[in-house]
Every structure is written in C-alpha cells, then in structure tokens.
Design a protein around this nucleic acid. Structure first.
Length: 970
DNA sequence: GAGCACTGC
C-alpha cells in the first residue's frame, strides 16, 4: 500500500497540457517522497510490485498504456468540443439552452417582483389576524394573573382605572368576535358586483325592516371595529411612567471591554506597504474617548449621507477605496501578486475590477476575473458593477455560477464562484483568457479558494503577465503574504461603526437559557434596536424560541412587543423572508440564527449581538471514513466576525456569553480551514485531472492531513479512477467532468452499462440536495411522517427518493404538491437543476441516456458499482457491520428499511450523532459485489454465513484483508 | 426513536 502511494505522482504525461514547470515540480517532490518511503516501509512495497509474474506485469502494463492513450484521446475530444463551442456561440444547441436559461431567469425575476409584494400583503394580513387572537388571549391571561396576584387591595387609583380599562377592552373584543362569528346576526356586507340583491340578501331579523336600520348597523359595526386598536403603538406613552420597576429573576452580569474599533469615522489614511508597516503601529489615542465616542458616533448616524440621493459616480467616489485608486494601480503594476487587506464596506469588491478595466487590463481582450465564495455574492456584485458602469449585465460585466452562465464574448469583468474557477482550470489550465485574477474573501478559507491558491501560485510562475490579487479581511494577510513569496500588502480602511464588547463575569452553564435571559435583559434595559442571537442549529433555535415566547408571555404587557424570528438554511423560504420585514415602530425584533447570519446574509437594523460562542462543524475522520457534525467553540476570528454584525447601521453592542479569559486563552485564533476537515475525494480527482501527480507535496497554504489524502487516493484507486501507479485513468477523467463526489460519479458511469441512466441521474440529484427533502415541522410531525411513508419503496431509500422526484415531475413540478406532502419545494427545484445539469453532461462523458424505470435490480446494481465501499452486512441485535472494516453501524431510524432489516445493504453515508448511523440505505444481494467490484471483494467475503458466527475481523484476518486489497491483481 | 451548521461544483 505504501508503495502505491509513493508511486502517486509518477511521470504521467498528463495530456492536459500541464506545464513543464508543474510536471518538473511534481517529479522532484515525488523523488523526495520515494526516498522517504523506502526508508520506513521495510521493503513491503517492492515486494508487492514484484510479486506478479512477468507476463502478467506486461499485460497489465499494456493495459495501463492503452488506458492512458484512450484517456488522452478523450481529453483531446473534450478540448476540441470546447473550442468549437466557444467559437460558435450562437449555434443552435447553445442558442436553445441560452434561451431556456434566459426564460427561466426572466420567470424567476418576474416571480420575485410580482409575487413578493402580494406575498407580503398576504402574510401581513394573516399575521394581523393571528396577532389579534394572540393579543386577546394575552390580555385575558393578564387580567386573570393580576386578579389572582393582587386581588383588589394595594391598587392605586391609576392601576384600578387601568385594570377596568383592560376589562372593557377585553369585553369589547370578545363581543366583536361573537358578532363576527355568529351566523344568525345579519351584518352589512358590501354587495358583490354583478350579484343580484335577491341572491345575497336573506332576511332573518325583523328589526332590519325598520327604516335606517342598515345604516345604523353599519355604523355600529364600524365603531366596534375602530374602538379596538391592537399593537404596540400606544406602548410608547407608557414607557416613561415608572409605575413598576421591572426586575428579572436571574440577570447575567456583563463586563464591558474595549470596543471592536469602528473604522467609519477615521479619516486618517492608512496605506502602507508591508515594509513600512512597522512604523504604523495602530494609534492608541482613541481608547480613552470610548464613552463619548459612543454618543458622538450616534450623531454621526444621523448625519450619514443618504446614498439613495447620490449619483452613482458620487457613491463611487465616497467609498473608502477611492482615494487609493492611483496608488493601488501603481502597486499592481509593480508587483505580480498583491495582498489587498480591507474590511467589508470598503468597496474593494466592486471598485478594484473597475479600476483595472479603466486602466486597460482588458484592452487585449483579456478578462479580469473575481472569485466569490457564494453564488448570491457573485450575482449581486456583478449586477451592481454593471449598473455602475452603465452596461447591461452579461455584456462587459458578467457572472458565472453553477446553473447560470451570464457572460458573453464581450465580457471583460467576470465575477464567479471559486468552484467555478476551479472548473475553468480543467478547460484552460493556464488561464489564458485572464489578465488579472482577484480572489476575494480569501480569509474565509473555503476549500476551493485554498486549492486555487496553490494552482494560481503555480500559474503565476510561468505567466509573468498574469496579475494576482488576494483580498482578505484583516489579520491573516501576513500569512497570505508569506505564502505568495512575500507579496506586498496593501491596506484599505473599511467602513464600520464601533461595537462595544461585553463578557460575562463567570462562565454560563446553559447557554440557550443564558441567551434568552440576555435577550430579555437587553429588551428591558437597552434602547430600541434589533437583536441577533447566534445558536448552533434548528433544535437550539426552537428551544430558545420557546423559552422566549414563554417568558414574554409571563411578563405580559409590562414590556414592549418582542418579535422572535428563527432563521436557518433549511427553513422554508417564506419563513426566512420574515426576518427582512421591517420591525413595527415601538417593537423589537429578535433573530435567532445559525451561522448563516455570520457571513451568508445580512439583516438590517441589528444593533445587539448575543454570541454564546459555539457552532456546529463538520469533521471528516479519514480513519473511519465517517463525517460527524459536532458542536465546537468558535474561533476568535469568528467571534469578531459575529460582533461586527452589530456595527453595520450604527454603533452596536455585542454580548459574549463567555468570559474574557476564555476568549483570550481557550479559543483558537482561527477556524480550522475547510481543507483540513473534509473528504477530499473530489479535490484529488480534480487535481489529478490537472496533471498534478504529487498531491502530498502540492503547495498548500495549510496542508490537509496526509491520512485524508491517502484515503481519498485509495478510494479513487478502488473506483478505478486511478491506476496502480496513481495515474488518472479514462474512467477517472470522465468522473472529473461530473460535479459530484467520486463514488457518485462512478455510479453514474456504471448506470450507462446497466441501462438505467435516467433513473440513476434522478437519485444522484436527490442525494445531492443534502437530506433537506422532507420538511418536518415540530407541530405537524405525525402528518409529515405519514406523508413520507407514502413514498416508501421496499428496496430502499434511494428508490424512495426516486419516487418522490418522479411523482413531483408528474405534477408538472408543482409547488402546491410539495406543500401538501411536506416536501421542500426549494430542495426539489435544486434537485431538478442538478439533474438537468448532469443530464446535459452525459454527452460530454460519452454516455447514452437510457431508461428502465421498472428494473429496480439494475438501478441497485449501478448504485453498488459506485458505493461498494459502503456495504454493510446484518450482524445481530439490529446492528450492522461494514463489509471491510467490520465497524458496527446502525440503520437510521428515518430509513424506510427500518421495519424489516435486510441482510446486505449499501448506504449513501455514515453519520455520527448519538450512534453511528447509515443514512439513505438500499437493499442489495451480496453476490452482486463479485459482479460489480470483483477487484475489491473475495468470494468468502460475500457468502451468507449468518447461520455461523461472524468471524472476528481482527489481528491476522485483518492483515490478510489489507494485503489482498493492496494487491488487486492477485 | 432520531435530528440536517454552512457553502460550492
């Protein structure tokens, strides 16, 4: 096995047109690696390679060579196809696809503009009705409480009057409801247009025959209606009479600390190259004016320029980057790589590409590319820049994200997601079309940006004309600078208000409870302004919401109205939209959010942030091949990012539910970058496709754990994406074209052989929208479960998912249908997009679309061909053991196979929660494994020996297995 | 009888 790894990166002629430099670097690294390995592997490796006889070795060698030739021919075909496509942009096929895309975009846009106001009005109406009921109930409870607590004594005159008033209000409200509901009372109804009077008018009451009754009745109705006013508008007048002084039972003591400096007020221009940096140690003169500063800054808010009244050019000139335009361009001219450090709001994302465009970096037809970690960011920034330049989006300024390519021949400034640039590398490894690449938000350290760093650094070496800008928020620019051979750092001030930080005096045991208490504390003691609470997940958010509504109810009308709103990614969009509605005057909004509010979306009007200091993070354990979602303390960088969310509209406050000591001593400086936490199967495949052989010694900003890389390569080898020398095979090259994980890619390719491509594409798409298909609200859990059970397929969850998709497709992709069966429309739409994209790629990987919906066996065999790594066999006591490692796993309780546990299963993924669960499971026959993965399974491994005792897979037996696997030929 | 943080191709 070790030898196999040492050989990874051998001198394959990549066929991707990889540069000589790159190949040379790889070879050098590989040599080094080889030397290291042979010293510690005790000759185990060479043994493995020399074992097979000479004849076999030859044929194997021949096979390998043949495959490599085929692979290179395939790559050539792909390149040719790409070239012919870019030349004839207006060709029929593309034209059709383009029109379809444009039509969809247009529809979506119309949907948004048309439906949104209507939805808003509708939801407001519903909300008002609901709120009225709530308020009546609340009032009732209040009155009861007070009667119980105070009876009649101890009441001042004012209190007594108030109470009487409340009773009257309640009585009126009840009467009104009674009148409205009662069927036998004739009320005035506006006659419907066109309807004849006789139809709609039914006599019931003799009184109505009297003269003027109708008029009087109408007036009475109106009066009743108006005499009730709901809402918090009248709360303001009670605000100042201190009839009662509210004291919370358990308050949390906070200690104020130095504020996170705002950058808005500063006019001091800080522009320092790295070498001058030491002189400009941050000025400490404004520490003592902390308190006054707070007030001062508030005035500043009032005076802040109203952007809507400024012309576009005026806005551009008012941005903090503007004064640095010329010096920035000079720095870019003088240096190939430049690190741009600037906080959000400095305008760097929108302005710098424009400056470059104006400075002539696009004159020879080359593009300025700017990557963003998120799709929405790429889209919205591009549209903003197009507007500023007075061009139509998609012409000179465009964006490119998955499912949507809004660029054209004329595009010079191109915004895209980082993953999209990765894909472009596959087509154009030296990025010939670009003169400048800007990697924005580099501090977020997404998987794709991290890989891009290595690739771009390499490309920059042999393309001196390519400029590289890495833009990041403060703190880690030094690290980027070191990585890019001491590249200079250019600093731009941001635009943010100061945020005052408060820590707890002692640690809080229960942070959900503590967060709720802090919300109320803020609500009672601090002036108006919305609150944002960071929690780890849906469950915590729901718990916190419950606590808050309960407490607010208990406090009744003694406090202002408090609107509690949840937000997390899996929340249906119409509920998500609520957090963007303006807070009614006099009320306060509390948003309970997951990490989604840390970077992905910005909520207006947030003044207070409550940060318990935890988040859920995904960790991939290479040894067990298992992902686990665990709650971990956040990093200091993340905590500061959260605090910064309070300083967007004015000076804010951040309440941290941990001690200052914990912040300084227990928390990590930075979050562990994604590349060190996730399964790298896909990344390895892509890098291999780029002709990078030696992945262990690839130039990483932070290297991933070697184990993760090794596991990824082992898996790719088992999937036949790499050959025994670690070179990319034809299969591997095709898999790299598909934007899915390697196992899924293999499954899709296998579907071609089994004639079930359409079916497998459907379930691949459904599996790709991560478990967010079924919506399960707490209050309707039973309904949701029965709805889900209706889709169950006896052969497993994959086919169940396929049922869901096919039924949905049968309803013409109806959203109503989704709503009725508790399926998330958003996820289904996404599945459809993914499916369309995959189907479109089938031609590219040279697979014929085929279908055979009734053949469950063929479908399951295709799944097994991709996921033979994920096989488990029934053991005992409802437990399963994985086929190779013998790890004990359980069937997930949500699986449709839970009732009747089959002997052999393939699972889509393992998750560690309370136990080790297999999620999305399908029934298979053990014998299929010999058919679809004969190189991986032995006869004796797939025999049904459940009558016998399970052999212990430990010690020697395990060694045997490993050896067998390491040498697939024997 | 559990539980899906968040992105991206």
């Amino acid at each position: 096995m070790v030898m196999f790894l040492a050989d990874v990166g051998s001198s394959s002629s990549s066929g991707r047109g990889g540069t000589s430099q790159r190949r040379e670097a790889g070879r050098a690294g590989q040599r080094k690696r080889k030397a290291e390995d042979s010293s510690d592997s005790e000759g185990e490796g060479p043994q493995l390679l020399s074992q097979p006889g000479r004849v076999k070795e030859l044929t194997e060698e021949q096979q390998r060579m043949m495959d490599l030739t085929e692979r290179d021919e395939y790559a050539k075909r792909l390149r040719e196809r790409d070239e012919s496509r870019t030349k004839n942009v207006a060709e029929k096929v593309d034209q059709k696809a383009f029109e379809e895309a444009a039509r969809r975009l247009q529809l979506e846009k119309e949907d948004r503009t048309k439906a949104l106001p209507k939805l808003r009005v509708e939801s407001r109406r519903k909300y008002l009705v609901k709120r009225k009921d709530d308020k009546i109930r609340e009032l009732e409870a209040d009155i009861q409480d007070e009667e119980y607590l105070f009876e009649d004594k101890d009441l001042s005159e004012k209190e007594r009057r108030e109470r009487e008033h409340r009773c009257t209000v309640l009585q009126l409200a009840k009467d009104y409801e009674k009148v409205r509901d009662a069927e036998n009372v004739q009320r005035y109804v506006m006659p419907e247009e066109g309807a004849s009077v006789d139809d709609s008018y039914v006599e019931v009451d003799e009184r109505e025959k009297k003269r003027g009754y109708e008029q009087r009745k109408w007036e009475e109705d109106q009066m009743r209606g108006t005499s009730l006013s709901f809402g918090a508008r009248d709360k303001a007048q009670h605000r100042h009479d201190k009839e009662y002084n509210l004291v919370l039972e358990d308050e949390i003591e906070f200690i104020k600390s130095l504020p996170l400096k705002g950058t808005r007020k500063k006019t001091k221009k800080k522009k320092k190259k790295k070498e001058e940096d030491s002189e400009s140690s941050s000025s400490s003169d404004d520490d003592e004016e902390e308190e006054e500063e707070e007030e001062e800054e508030e005035e500043d808010v009032m005076k802040a320029p109203d952007n809507s009244k400024m012309s576009i050019q005026e806005v551009r000139r008012s941005l903090p980057v503007f004064p640095f335009r010329d010096s920035l361009l000079a720095a870019i001219r003088d240096h190939q790589v430049l690190i741009v450090e600037g906080e959000t709001g400095s305008g760097k994302t929108t302005q710098i590409p424009q400056y470059l465009y104006e400075a002539g970096y696009c004159d020879d037809g080359k593009k300025v590319g700017c990557t963003q970690p998120r799709r929405v960011a790429a889209m919205s920034v591009a549209s903003r820049v197009a507007q500023e330049m007075g061009k139509k989006l998609g012409n000179e300024v465009g964006y490119s994200i998955r499912f949507e390519d809004c660029t054209s021949e004329r595009t010079r400034i191109k915004y895209m997601t980082d993953g999209m640039l990765m894909r472009e590398f596959l087509v154009d490894p030296s990025l010939e079309g670009y003169s400048v690449i800007i990697v924005d938000e580099a501090h977020e350290r997404t998987l794709h940006t991290d890989i891009l760093f290595g690739l771009l650094k390499d490309v920059a070496r042999f393309r001196p004309d390519l400029k590289l800008l890495v833009s990041s928020a403060t703190l880690d620019s030094e690290k980027f600078s070191d990585f890019f051979d001491e590249a200079p750092v250019f600093r731009i001030p941001g635009r943010r208000y100061p945020v005052h930080i408060y820590y707890t005096r002692s640690p809080e045991a229960n942070y959900i409870e503590a967060a709720a208490v802090t919300v109320l504390q803020i609500h009672i003691t601090q002036r108006l302004g919305d609150v944002l609470v960071f929690l780890t997940g849906q469950e915590e958010i729901e718990a916190c919401q419950e606590i808050l509504t309960e407490r607010v109810k208990a406090l009744g009308s003694k406090i202002r109205e408090l609107i509690v709103l949840p937000i997390y990614a899996n929340l249906p969009s119409e509920m998500q939209a609520k957090i963007f509605e303006a807070t009614p005057p006099g009320a306060r909004k509390v948003v309970l959010a997951t990490n989604i509010a840390e970077t992905s979306l910005t909520i207006d009007g947030i003044v207070y942030v409550i940060d318990p200091g935890y988040a859920k993070q995904n960790y991939f354990n290479a040894r067990s091949g298992m992902e686990s979602l665990v709650v971990v303390p956040i990093s200091r960088a993340s905590a500061n990012q959260r605090a910064g969310r309070a300083g967007r509209v004015g000076p804010g406050k951040c309440f941290r539910l941990y001690t200052k000591w914990a912040f300084e001593n227990e928390m990590e400086e930075n979050t562990v970058p994604e590349i060190q936490r996730v399964n790298l199967g896909n990344v390895v495949l892509q890098l291999k496709s780029l002709g990078i052989g030696d992945l262990i010694n690839f130039d990483y900003l932070d290297p991933p754990p070697a184990e993760t890389l090794i596991l990824a390569m082992e898996q790719l080898y088992a999937l036949k994406a790499l050959n025994h020398k670690g070179e990319l095979t034809l299969t591997g090259r095709k898999m790299a074209e598909l934007p899915v994980d390697p196992m899924m890619g293999r499954m899709i390719l296998a579907a071609g052989e089994f004639g079930v491509v359409e079916e497998v594409l459907t379930l691949a798409a459904m599996l790709s929208v991560n478990g967010a298909i079924f919506y399960r609200p707490k209050d309707k859990a039973i309904h949701a479960d029965t709805a889900r059970k209706n889709f169950f397929h006896p052969d497993g969850d994959h086919l169940t998912l396929m049922n869901v998709y096919n039924e949905w497709a049968g309803t013409e992709y109806s959203s109503q249908w989704c709503y009725e069966v508790f399926v998330q429309y958003r996820s289904m739409k996404r599945a459809r997009d993914i499916r369309d994209q995959l189907a479109g790629l089938m031609e590219r990987v040279e697979i014929q679309l085929s279908t055979n919906p009734a053949d469950s066996m063929a479908i399951r065999k295709a799944i097994t061909a991709g996921y033979f790594y994920h096989v488990a066999r029934f053991s005992k006591g409802g437990m399963y053991k994985t086929a190779k490692k013998g790890q004990t796993v359980m069937m997930h309780p949500q699986s449709c196979l839970c009732e009747d546990l089959p002997r052999w299963v393939v699972y889509h993924e393992l998750v560690l929660t309370t136990k080790e669960y297999m999620r999305n499971v399908v029934v298979i026959d053990g014998k299929w494994l010999l058919e679809v993965a004969p190189h991986y399974y032995r006869d004796n491994e797939v025999q049904d020996n459940t009558s016998k005792k399970m052999p212990k897979v430990k010690g020697k037996a395990k060694e045997e297995l490993t050896k067998e696997y390491a040498d697939p030929v024997s």
